[in-house]
Simulated assay, not measured.
Amino acid sequence: MIIVDEREIPGSTPVEWREYRYISDDGHDNFLGNGLFNKLTSQIEPPVPTSGGAITENCKLWLPSGELLHALSYKGDIDGWRKQIELGAKKLGLFTGKIVGDSIFLSDERCYQLSDCQIEFY
């Protein structure tokens, strides 16, 4: 478990019933509201997941490169949601990240230590 400002970084403690992903910011929209989160989760039609849902985790992660990622999670049809998020990100030209241990692994094959990243909760 990795704690920042007394809050756990989303995805730093795996759970069976929920999965966490980080999505790169395209710089065009807010993540919340009708912004990037909605674009990402509704990009693939018809939707892949058969149950559950996705939510924002109100956490920003800046890579040492300066790139910004947003945390989200999903539950229910975890495999379906993972596919929905990954395909949506690819279609939007975004990359995804997953925390494993004390590192974030990116879909473009980069990897960073979380201690080298900046975390902000909002």
Rank of each mutant, 00 (worst) to 15 (best):
I3S: 09
V4G: 02
D5M: 08
E6D: 14
E8S: 06
I9L: 13
I9G: 05
I9H: 06
G11C: 13
G11K: 11
T13I: 13
V15F: 07
W17L: 08
R18G: 01
E19G: 07
E19L: 07
Y22S: 12
S24K: 13
G27N: 11
G27D: 09
H28A: 09
D29L: 15
N30C: 05
F31R: 06
L32F: 07
L32A: 03
G35T: 02
G35S: 02
G35A: 01
L36G: 01
F37K: 03
N38M: 07
N38W: 01
K39G: 00
L40Q: 02
L40K: 04
T41V: 15
T41P: 00
S42I: 00
S42V: 00
I44E: 01
I44K: 02
E45G: 00
E45D: 02
E45H: 03
E45L: 07
P46D: 00
P47A: 06
P49D: 03
S51Y: 00
S51H: 01
G52L: 01
G53D: 09
A54C: 14
I55E: 10
I55H: 04
T56A: 12
E57K: 05
C59E: 04
K60F: 00
L63C: 06
P64V: 02
G66S: 04
E67C: 00
L69R: 02
H70Q: 11
A71V: 07
L72Q: 05
S73H: 10
S73I: 08
S73Q: 08
K75V: 01
K75Y: 12
G76K: 10
D79W: 01
G80E: 13
W81D: 11
K83G: 00
Q84R: 13
Q84D: 13
I85N: 12
G88Q: 09
A89F: 09
K90I: 10
K90L: 11
L92I: 13
G93M: 10
G93F: 06
F95K: 15
G97M: 09
K98Y: 07
I99Y: 08
G101P: 05
S103Y: 08
F105M: 09
F105L: 14
F105W: 08
L106S: 11
L106M: 14
C111E: 15
C111N: 12
Y112V: 03
Y112T: 04
Q113P: 03
Q113N: 15
Q113M: 08
Q113K: 15
L114E: 01
L114C: 01
S115C: 05
S115P: 00
S115M: 04
C117M: 11
C117S: 11
Q118S: 15
I119S: 11
F121C: 08
Y122M: 12
Y122V: 11
